[in-house]
Nucleic acid binder design. Structure first.
Lengths: 209, 209
DNA sequence: AGGAAAAACGAACTATTGTTTGACGAACAA
DNA sequence: TTGTTCGTCAAACAATAGTTCGTTTTTCCT
């Protein structure tokens, strides 16, 4: 009687097993598993077998690993799905830079792929329904790129007499105005005195309860 | 002449230096730095000094570390800002489970704090303007919790004759209907034949170009 | 000035962990 | 059946990296 010492499963399946355990491990622990962790996690008994599978995963571009480095496996796909944390601005204090520490309530994670310069972004919670026509509702979060100028048609965050407001920047009858997207609100003349553009809306997030 | 071999800076400042380098390193590399990496990064020459600072950071609850484990530092604050990646469903193939592999285009990162069960979520890109009244525009992404039932008033993703659509579930004149939030679209009767609720919209994301 | 405490240093120690090697078993084709 | 290939295994090797220890330097207090 020959004793069955191991089973030789389909390689692709085993590689998948290893890959899944890596992602799972990183997700729960926050750092990469070791070769021996993968042994325990997958039931594979030899470190060299894991090693071979890791090479396959690296060669197919699914993971990144540096030779010799411990716990240095990273999921290649995460690169595209990188996340930045941008500040959520609660109140806009008068005379204080928008991103000053006292303004920042917390940080929200945002897909980095959506923006080229996430370090210049901030988020703002919408109060009121003046922008309903643009699909921006009360309670929504807008993600704003900080910049002093904007184009006509852009939805901007502006400071008017020490109050922050979100409106569409437009040109009407020869004047630059801040236009609400709701007929029951009045268009605000944008005269340079006391008016300041803080940034341009680049994204909207709404959570349904 | 006494040779100045090292300067003894304020401990808090040095701890901060170490902490910042850890976050920076993890952000760029995807895995934790080693004690010796931190030496190079901070200019501190002794591994034991770094070790002492790491203990301080752990004791003050700012980082997590397990004794003996290599490259296993994690930033404690990241815990609260955890991100889940939920599948972006491109097409909805007839007769195939919504989360089947062939439906999934890619994955989007979403703040885990927003949902209790991110593993049951999927995302869908909106085509058309039938939900303008609810602030859901063409090109928006909706984040959907997968469930077979829903309440009246919920915005649902439903399958009607093998086509996925996003509408408000409502009751009108004694019948259950799928109601568009746009007067130029017709209300769709929700008869059980060929009609299926795939999930309920929990979030909306819009990126302004 | 003298001494204690705190912080940094350098070197040695330890062990976790990546890597290599050679052998064995299973699957498959000739 | 027989040989080849490939996946797995066990064990040993090598080295990266966590930890400890005793000393030196700086700061601060008396």
């Amino acid at each position: 009687m020959t004793k069955r010492k191991f089973t030789k499963a389909n390689v692709d399946d085993t590689v998948e097993l290893v890959y899944n355990y890596i992602t799972e491990y990183i997700k729960t622990n926050g750092f990469s598993p070791t070769v021996r962790d993968l042994c325990k996690g997958t039931g594979i008994r030899s470190t060299s077998t894991i090693h071979a599978h890791l090479k396959r995963l690296r060669d197919s571009g699914r993971i990144d690993m540096e030779a010799g480095k411990r716990r240095a496996l990273t999921i290649a796909a995460f690169e595209q799905q990188k996340v930045d944390h941008i500040p959520l601005v609660g109140r806009v204090a008068a005379g204080v830079p928008i991103l000053a520490e006292e303004n920042i309530d917390s940080y929200l994670p945002v897909p980095a792929a959506f923006y080229t310069e996430p370090e210049h972004m901030f988020a703002l919670e919408i109060t009121g329904d003046s922008m309903i026509g643009a699909g921006i509702l009360n309670g929504d979060y807008v993600f704003v790129k900080k910049q002093a100028g904007a184009d006509y048609g852009d939805i901007v965050v502006a400071l008017i007499d020490d109050e922050a407001t979100v409106k569409t920047l437009a040109r009407e009858q020869g004047r630059t105005v801040l236009k609400p997207e709701n007929p029951s609100y009045k268009t605000i003349p944008f005269d340079q005195e006391g008016c300041l553009i803080l940034g341009v809306v680049r994204g909207v997030w709404r959570a349904h309860v």
